[in-house]
Amino acid sequence: MKADLVLNAKGLACPMPIVKTKKAIHTLEPGQVLEVQATDQGAKNDLTAWCKSTGNELVDFTNQGDVLVFWIKKS
């Protein structure tokens, strides 16, 4: 999937992947897509819950080896 912005949060521990995702989403326009790459396994449940609570849409998710990749469309 094509992203408008890629956030590398690999190697970062909780809470940093979400702190950085929140900042990155702020720079986007509604409808644009942010790709987040993270290695903290806790990010899966947390980013899913964060999208739900903020209204941003988690369009897709894959597990590429140790790296979790999320595509989030700004609401």
């Binding site: 979400i18 702190v19 929140k22 947390d46 609570s53």
Partner: peptide, 12 residues
């Protein structure tokens, strides 16, 4: 023990 649950990402 008393609990209160609020995810950290809602406290940023």
């Amino acid at each position: 023990i008393t609990h209160h649950n609020v995810p950290y990402f809602e406290l940023l």
